[in-house]
Design a protein around this nucleic acid. Structure first.
Lengths: 225, 225
DNA sequence: CTAGCAGCGTGACCCCTCTCACCCCGGGTT
DNA sequence: AACCCGGGGTGAGAGGGGTCACGCTGCTAG
């Protein structure tokens, strides 16, 4: 599993369009860091000046309320990146990032990245594409929080998770607690909802995965019938 | 009030860095359109291929649920733009845009804009900056929806609205109904909350504006004490 | 002037969910 | 074995806030 920095960079869609020599150059500028499960990679309000590429593992981007409750804004796996916003408009970091598993990241310094941004429009456009995608997601999430009840939000989440894996099967480990934090609900309510979905034959749950059995029903629950 | 297209373009922060000749060139490529209050400028799921600049008036970006309920994702005034996402990754439009007042917009065709994007990194970077800002906002909104109760969300909204106008005074017309749609609540609840804020001396409301009287109290209600 | 409409104020009711409190299970650990 | 701990299941109770139903006020338009 131990990929070289260059291999990791090759897998980042953002850099796809760059010639091999550029990639190698990039790999040089990179610093590798590992984070144990549960550790905080960066804090909200920090003045950060690096871009992080996920080489292995998984991290979550979270907001934490006064009372300690957590909202998961997104979960990022290998090949994705974060920390770009603070680079673009150099304001402080807008959320915490926490390792969900032991993870190794590549760290790129602001200047090295910004230079690339200025010199190659491909990278800038790739980044635009990605930010645009993330903004779309965020807007959809706002919509689901306001327009859907917990049932709908769970259905929505399941559909998206399955879509990401390109089928009806979700292998990705999703605990009820995690789901709750992603849709702004509580562990117990998610538990009851999932139970209900199983009873109604919408989904099938085993110890290690979830299978969507009745897409139409889920779609309708998620308000996109 | 009737500005020429060139004047309008000059006021768009996104194009600030461009030389005057470029701006003039841009103005040429632009088509002016007016929309009466309440009219729909673009529909969710449309395949759109234009970028819109707001010359005058005000528009809202909204999501509409199955039952017809509306969520306002953002309100855009003169000098701002929308429709860029569909250009960047050419997926269908992700929300409806509706004129809140009689508005006049400048429409720029995809090709003309994309060309500028590729040729001048300043524009690309400016756009990155703006998308980044919007993403940050969206994330904050998600946080407030999940972590705050209606009281907190109203307080949060008031603080932001005042901040945008750079003081403690909100002149911008904000009906309770509009506020409700912005924070995912109902007209009645917003009404009661505002009443409560007035009684507790947090704000002062007249027919045409709102004044923040007790920032600390509002900040604490909004969970950023 | 009178109608009509957009906004706001308020009470009553009720339901979705959150919270709290336990209990159970399976798989590592010592 | 005896524990511990992460994950999940469930009941009971309470409450925030949505919905319904009116009433009022102040514009803008005939």
């Amino acid at each position: 599993m131990a990929l070289s920095p260059l291999d990791v960079i090759r897998r980042v869609p953002l850099f796809e369009s760059l010639p091999e020599t550029e990639l190698a150059h990039f790999a040089e500028l990179t610093r590798e860091k590992t984070y144990p499960k549960g550790s905080v990679i960066l804090f909200e309000n920090d003045r950060g000046d690096s871009l992080f590429l996920v080489a292995s593992g998984q991290v979550k981007v979270v907001l934490i309320g006064e009372d300690g409750r957590e909202v998961i804004l997104s979960v990022l796996g290998p090949g994705t990146f974060f920390g770009e916003m603070a680079l673009i408009d150099d304001s402080p970091r807008s959320a915490h990032v926490i390792a969900m598993e032991d993870s190794t990241l590549l760290v790129l310094r602001r200047e090295d990245f910004q230079q690339r941004l200025r010199s190659s429009p491909e990278v800038a456009i790739g980044l635009l594409r990605e930010l645009s995608r993330r903004l779309r997601r965020a807007d959809e999430k706002i919509g689901s929080l306001v327009l859907l009840d917990v049932n709908g939000r769970v259905a929505d989440l399941l559909l998206r998770a399955a879509a990401e894996e390109g089928g009806d099967l979700i292998r990705r480990k999703l605990t009820h607690h995690t789901i709750a934090q992603m849709i702004g609900s509580s562990r117990e309510t998610v538990s009851r909802t999932m139970r209900d979905f199983v009873e109604r034959g919408f989904i099938m749950v085993t110890r290690k995965d979830i299978t969507l059995m009745d897409r139409p029903a889920l779609l309708s629950a998620a308000g996109r019938s």
